[in-house]
Amino acid sequence: MDISFKAILIQGMLGLNNGAFYAMLSLGLAVIFGLLNIVNFAHGAFYMLGAFAALIGLTQLGGWIGMPDLQINFWWALLLAPLFVGLLGVLVDRTMLKRLAGLDHLYGLLLTFGIALVLQGLFTNYYNTAGTPYPGKPEMLDGVVNLGFMFFPKYRLFALVFSLLVCLLTWYLIERTKLGAILRAGTENPDLVQALGINVPLLITLTYGFGVGLAALAGVLAAPIYSVSPLMGAELIIVVFAVVVIGGMGSIMGAIVTGLGLGMIEGITKVVYPPASSTVVFIIMAIVLLVRPAGLFGRE
């Protein structure tokens, strides 16, 4: 078997690109689990909603509201879709998740799983599962750049850098700011944080909105790369859960590093031993669970 170093680098870069999506999604999941104690199975559906929000905003929204010329372009979608989906998350928390406070994890998991199925079902009804390409990739991001060892699509490079920035900003927000300190304290002991005068129910709602907004942002970024389909989130979320398990719930940087690392490993496996490329993440998950059940970066 002759595997060129170049092929490994190329797949590694493409894998890193996927990894950046894993990182953004697992970040939101970890933050939500930390404060709400809910395993958010709807996360993939909100990612899908982000991509659809971008698609619909560009191609259909204008027609729906009687302004056929209105097209929400990619850049605006990058801002508006996460806001819209984040607000939807706020609504979901206020109307449904709040009622589960204090109950077993399982109820939150079942409810969010149900929400995911409803959302996927709705979109499957109106858009086919084969997927619709997103036609709004900005012209300036067409073409490729020469990285020296390979030609890399400009858009993918943009998506990679952009999601890395978002991850680092989120890390900074949580680990280095006052708001982040409140969030971390709330993750440790929400009752006491509330007894110290902080409106924890509001904090929880905003955190859920922020987490799913992050998923939607990843969805918008993904739209020009993958086709927009009702099941795009369901396929991805399984891997993302594995990423969260491997990284551990305790650390924000852990979620980012694990996401990127696993994306790369997945990419490289495509060259080294292609049949294992879609299972390698789960093999790693099994090993990590055996050796370090709290995850690589988790706190016991």
Binding site: R184, A185, T187, E188, D191, L192, Q194, A195, L196, G197
Partner: peptide, 24 residues
């Protein structure tokens, strides 16, 4: 009232287990 509103009326609470946030 919920706890945070009561605290904001001017009540400071020091719990038995001290409640120091380990990650802060």
């Amino acid at each position: 009232l919920p706890p945070h509103r009561i605290a904001r009326l001017g009540v400071g609470y020091c719990p038995e287990e001290r409640g120091i946030f380990a990650s802060l």
